[in-house]
Design a binder for these strands. Structure first.
Length: 638
RNA sequence: GCCGAUGUGGCUCAGUGGUAGAGCAGCUCACUCGUAAUGAGCAGGUCGUGGGUUCGACUCCCACCAUCGGCUCCA
């Protein structure tokens, strides 16, 4: 029989040859590295026997596909270990995920960190036993019989929901699990894994269902890959904005205001720098800026649909026996500004920005530092325009967002979210809006993913997911196209024909939330902000108290040039003060002693590169002010 | 909201039925120092909050709050 290989070559084999044997035939080394195969586009086990005419590709352990096989098998090995150690455990699901794998268990006993160690040891034993992993197909009814008699109620539910009349089981030693596969050929092939954490998870992700216990772990082809991954986790922990926010005295959170962050003087500097930058770019892009109130009357929210569609997330209050709501979004307020005067078609588009503080009631368990809060400042804008301007305006926003992310060194990914279940407005309007967004993305040649049903209740949206320098992604910017609010609020402009027409609206953000964006920046830069964002840009360190006067004169000169600068004239050794500044991630340390004071110079030490030697004060001022003005500095990709 | 864990001075953590301890930070003093921690001294805590058990609770029990890891949700 004939088998086609990825290079297009065709080989002749006997009927019944397995993928593994084909790999061996090609080369023993390939066989050794093989973990699975891809036959006619389907991932299969090494034991799979392709049919005549099939095309076969060997999946080797250094590939992304291999990783998911390895992790899936690791999940099975973990389930086997748990089954050995804890009688009566019911197995739910155990897939491979982006960074590893998990398995959900239903068990009376609550897993503890010590249990993880024991489970890991048992897994090691299973690996050492090198149990062959074999696949068996059984009829659905036999499968149901099998899991029912074993009391595996979750498997029973899974099988009942599966299409087709046959299902497959994989077994290794005494352990057997419903699974589509593929899997490693034996447990001995599992070389590098680690269990990481225990968490609760609802059966099938539905909060009405029973809460199961999930164990997360990760696995790699090689020990060294696992170590790199664990080091990355460590690195992420070091960069945690909650820790750095405390260390660098940027912000704090208090029991008195869960989810309501407090910004300290250092944090406010970062905030204001970002806002300055934002204002500059928006003014240049033709935006005006407004400010609207935080508390507004119920009738406005009824009109906008928030009262009906968004109430669970809103805070309320009463004023003079009337219901008011704390705004969860800025649009209704912004619309009142639009309505406060007549608009000509000549005025459009109106690009109206607002740094609006919104409050949303998030469930208590979801709060997380600055990433998930209950009050945040959206860098919002609403663009009111004619229909013929829609495409250009969307493209304009895409370009603006792009230029912002570029400045911080964030690569990003784009997603298009379509009509959700709780939408308001007709299908026609939704189709129109969705097509417009799609059209703009395509006009810009951007790749995007579609998120069915994930739009806002009043319109579809484009989301920007940016990637920080250790590879995590965050949703920040969004562009939402809205035909519904203009209708609800009866927005109009006067057209060329002298008659009233309906404008279209775009809601958009770049940072998303200032709070979250600052959190992301903290982690992205690991707290070492570029000079323009640094709370303290330079610290002058006199060698002894003989040099205090000179140090202060240098600091004065820097301050006059607009540099945020401090003198550390504490009675401590030079090394101590250097270390202190270094830990506070001050970009420049300026050591001044006899040599410097006699020549009006500073000895420059950079946060990144250490001692740079002496330069005249004047030239340092030029260097640092240039760096600030151009807002340079993008972190190294790791 | 749900499951699990945690909560001790500004920070990091030890303590575990007999009314709290370290390091760092802070303050004072000495040292006057050249690129990541000089030394000595002082001060600082109703042990998350509220109940209960006990002769006695930071320690045991209950409730609540907050935080952390997830689930769900989302900027």
């Amino acid at each position: 029989m004939r088998i086609t290989l990825p290079d297009g070559s065709v080989k002749e084999y006997n009927q019944g040859i397995s993928v593994g044997e084909i790999a061996l035939d090609i080369s023993p080394r390939l066989r050794k590295a093989a973990v699975a195969g891809i036959v006619d586009g389907e991932m299969v086990d090494l034991s799979y026997q392709p049919r005549d005419g099939a095309s076969v590709k060997i999946v080797t352990e250094d590939t992304e596909e291999a990783l998911s096989v390895i992790r899936h098998s690791a999940a099975h090995v973990m389930a086997q270990a748990v089954s050995r150690l804890f009688g009566g455990v019911k197995l739910a699901i155990g897939p491979a995920i982006d960074d590893g794998f998990y398995y959900d268990f239903d068990l009376e006993h609550r897993f503890t960190p010590e249990d993880l160690e024991a489970i890991e040891k048992e897994m090691q034993r299973i690996v050492e036993q090198n149990l062959p992993i074999t696949r068996a197909e059984v009829s659905k009814s036999a499968a149901l019989e099998k899991v029912r008699s074993a009391g595996q109620i979750y498997k029973e539910e899974l099988i009942s929901d599966l299409e087709g009349d046959h299902v497959s089981f994989y077994s290794q030693g005494e352990f057997e699990d419903l699974c589509r596969g593929p899997h490693l050929e034996s447990t001995g092939r599992l070389k590098a894994f680690k269990l990481l954490s225990i968490a609760g998870a609802y059966w099938r992700g539905d909060e009405r269902n029973k809460m199961l216990q999930r164990i997360y772990g990760t696995a790699f082809a090689k020990r060294s890959d696992l170590e790199v991954h664990l080091a990355r986790l460590e690195e992420a922990k070091k960069r945690d904005h909650r820790k750095l926010g405390k260390d660098l005295d940027l912000f704090s959170l208090h029991e008195e205001g869960p989810g309501f962050p407090f910004f300290h003087p250092n944090g406010v500097i970062v905030w204001n720098e970002l806002v300055n930058y934002w204002r500059e770019k928006h003014a240049a892009a033709g935006y005006v800026e407004i400010k609207t109130p935080i508390v507004l009357n119920r009738s406005l929210w009824e009109n906008s649909g928030h009262w009906e569609k968004y109430r669970e997330n809103m805070y309320f209050t009463q004023i003079d026996e009337q219901d008011f709501a704390v705004k969860p979004m800025n649009c209704p307020g912004g619309i009142l500004v639009y309505q406060s005067s007549l608009h000509s078609y000549r005025d459009l588009p109106i690009r109206c920005a607002e740094l609006g503080l919104v409050h949303r009631h998030e469930k208590s368990g979801t709060l997380h530092g600055l990433f998930r809060v209950r009050a945040f400042t959206q860098d919002d804008a609403h663009i009111y325009m004619r229909r013929d301007q829609v495409q250009d305006e969307i493209i304009g926003v895409i370009d603006l967002v792009d230029s912002f992310y570029r400045a911080f060194g964030f690569p990003y990914r784009v997603e298009l979210s379509t009509k959700p279940e709780n939408a308001i407005g007709s299908d026609d309007i939704w189709d129109l809006a969705t097509d417009a967004l799609r059209g703009a993305l395509e006009a810009r040649g951007l790749d995007y993913r579609v998120n069915e049903g994930d739009g806002a209740f009043y319109g579809p949206k484009i989301d920007f997911h940016l990637e920080d320098c250790i590879g995590r992604t965050w949703q920040c910017g969004t562009i939402q196209l809205d035909f519904v609010m203009p209708e609800r609020f009866d927005l109009t402009y006067v057209g060329e024909d002298g008659r009233k027409h309906r404008p279209v609206m775009i809601h958009r953000t770049v940072f998303g939330s200032l709070e979250r964006f600052i959190g992301i920046l903290i982690e992205h830069y690991a707290g070492a902000f570029p000079v323009w964002l640094s709370p303290v840009q330079a610290v002058v360190i006199p060698v002894t108290d003989m040099h205090h006067a000179y140090a202060h004169s240098v600091a004065r000169e820097l301050a006059e040039a607009g540099v945020r600068c401090r003198v550390d004239d504490r009675n401590e050794k030079l090394g101590y003060r250097i270390r202190d500044a270094q830990l506070l991630k001050v970009p420049y340390m300026l050591v001044v002693g006899d040599n410097e004071s006699s020549s009006r110079s500073v000895s420059v030490r950079s946060r990144e590169h250490g001692d740079r030697g002496s330069v005249p004060v004047e030239s340092f001022v030029k260097t640092i002010t240039d760096e600030i003005r151009t807002r340079s500095g993008v972190p190294q990709k790791r």
